[in-house]
Design a protein around this nucleic acid. Structure first.
Lengths: 238, 238
DNA sequence: GCGATAAGAATGGCATACCAAAAATTCTCA
DNA sequence: TGAGAATTTTTGGTATGCCATTCTTATCGC
């Protein structure tokens, strides 16, 4: 475990804290730590061969990002996202992606749109093969790409942070989602509107897409089935 | 200076780090530290009578909130918000407030709307008296209230964080803004749509309002005139 | 006198030590 | 045997120390 820390980007300019934070972020997002699980700073620091100081500072960063919760005198635990949280965060996410799509229509080059469509068809291929892993990965990639094409760095950053908070839930939902084909159709519509560069249409389709996908999530959270070791790139363009 | 640390909320359950972070946040937002200014951890720690450890951890939190920037081996400096940053962040803010307004129309009680209108008339009074301090304070209070009435905690939190990043710029702009009356008229329109509980209308008015107020901010940043000691409550309902 | 450079001071990064609170364990007594 | 109290152990919070890098400044050479 300790030997895998350098998985994270190894920019020599960044300090230990960033490496530790990246490592923890990765493992929390990929669900290698269960929500609610305690993160004992001594033990983790020992495993990563660092002292407690950078570990604690990394906790503070992750807490500000909403991935862990620090309780006084009880330390850090992996943030547990309640069904209500999911709804609220997903709503904000849909709003952000809607506006990103609008900006995307104005800013993206024809090549950008073409690349999006390429990803879309790759995703469709995964869909037809019932390949949920790659379907999920490509789906994420498309959404992230649209946001990236907005050109608004603040929007991109906030979206990425929020997106990470929901990654696990989204992944679990992808595994059990029955209405796969509906989501696929919605994506078709999104791509069509994108090709036509109709900002309002793209925005509405996207918001509706996310809304439909997540509003139903008002029911009790999915069981705590651990995520498989997927080789997805967590964030594409950041 | 050191004696003023307990200005910030003194919840005995929260540790030193939170107190330090609150203290620094307050002073950065209120522009007692200039953008770009270095924040030497030893000196500040000494002034606040704490060790360097909580100071450093507080820096990490504020960095994650976008209020300071930490460069390797150079430490923390107060984040400088470039004109482009202002535009981008203000755009996201307008999107968030637009959707907050929509939710607000659905969730707010009649009393909530009445209270908003009361604030609006207070603000109008400040406008007529050319009382920029209170005009600004009440303006902020109204916007924050609308967001709070959305009932979406994620939205509220993200809006608050982003809002703090722009507080200084917004305050400076308020002091020099010539088109005061235009903004006032827009607020009238917002309130009218809110009273009619027309989500689309409120949303559009609000987004247009913020858009108009900030899009012009593409020109060079305002000069670094320090903020006066205003007794504004930074955030109202959080 | 001015610029480059080297020595010294300041500063940040990380590790460690110490303390207090909390959790776990064990011991005691009913 | 079981519940509760006391003790031990673990764990988090804060302070401090050491080292490496950077910034300052003063000196040396041109």
């Amino acid at each position: 475990m300790a030997t895998t820390m350098d998985e994270a980007a190894m920019d020599p300019r960044e300090g230990l804290v960033e490496k530790v934070a990246n490592y923890l972020r990765e493992h929390i997002v990929m669900d290698h730590f269960q929500p609610g699980q305690r993160l004992p700073e001594r033990k983790l620091a020992e495993e990563l061969d660092v002292s407690r100081t950078p570990m604690r500072e990394a906790f503070k960063i992750l807490a500000a990002e909403g991935l862990v919760v620090i309780s006084p005198r009880r330390g850090a635990v992996v943030a547990d996202v309640s069904p209500q949280d999911v709804q609220e965060k997903a709503y904000v996410l849909s709003v952000l992606e809607q506006s990103a799509a609008e900006l995307c229509c104005a800013n993206a080059t024809d090549d950008d749109i073409a690349e999006l469509q390429a990803l879309h068809f790759e995703m469709k291929a995964a869909f037809l093969r019932r390949d949920r892993q790659n379907y999920f990965r490509l789906n994420q990639a498309i959404h992230n790409r649209i946001v990236a094409l907005s050109g608004n760095n603040s929007l991109i950053e906030i979206h990425a942070t929020l997106s990470r908070q929901l990654y696990r839930v989204r992944y679990l939902s992808n595994l059990k989602n029955e209405k796969w084909s509906v989501a696929m159709e919605e994506h078709e519509a999104i791509m069509a509107a994108l090709e036509a560069r109709d900002p309002t249409q793209v925005g509405n389709e996207l918001r509706n897409h996310l809304g439909k996908t997540w509003m139903k999530y008002a029911n009790p959270a999915a069981e705590d089935q651990p995520l498989a070791d997927v080789d997805t790139d967590t964030e594409s363009g950041q």
